[in-house]
Design a protein around this nucleic acid. Sequence first.
DNA 1: CTCATGATTCGATGTTTATAAAATTATAAA
DNA 2: TTTATAATTTTATAAACATCGAATCATGAG
Lengths: 99, 99
Amino acid sequence: MDIKQMAKIFKALSNPNRLELYLKISEAREASFNACGECSIADIKSCFNIGAPTVSHHIKELVNANLITTEKRGKFLICKVNTQLTSEVADLLRLTNNS
Amino acid sequence: MDIKQMAKIFKALSNPNRLELYLKISEAREASFNACGECSIADIKSCFNIGAPTVSHHIKELVNANLITTEKRGKFLICKVNTQLTSEVADLLRLTNNS
DNA sequence: CTCATGATTCGATGTTTATAAAATTATAAA
DNA sequence: TTTATAATTTTATAAACATCGAATCATGAG
């Protein structure tokens, strides 16, 4: 993976609110918001102390870093984690560690 | 690990130059700058197109996030990766992935 | 069609950040 | 002790960022 892309991923996870958002979306697959492992902006927003425009902005950054994907379902936007990318990054970090 | 600490780590890795710096320090253990798996600021600086003050600032951020440790040896500052933290982070990323 | 609601865009604002130039400190060598 | 070199601190600046309120867009319900 290219350094710029890697940095972009880390940047997307570098804001505490956005990171928590991301983790929430990840967890949604298990203790689900809607039993399908998905998570709407309204769901997310109700867990945080930040406004809808900010949530929207954060979501966009996560999508932009390819960490999640979204899908419009009716009025709602459904977010899912891109599990492959996350584990790629984990592997890269692991590589720097072959002590 | 606490969300804020996690975010801090990611922030420290979110700048392309700083990330590359960090990776360079990691690699130094193998294809070494000084055969002891260490890496001085001068070594680093000579690989990048950024000035000494900037390198110094980046190093400080990496130390601050606990990703590296430093040790002054004579005129030189020697940097080493904190491998434990790195693998903790990798594990955390992995965790979001238990599909 | 109208309305309510979920989400996005726009505009503004205060904060953080990356970077460099200049000045300063620390240390080893001559 | 003087000098050269490595690194840090200080100061300044331009760019990026997080956040919000207001306006807007999109969609499903009545």
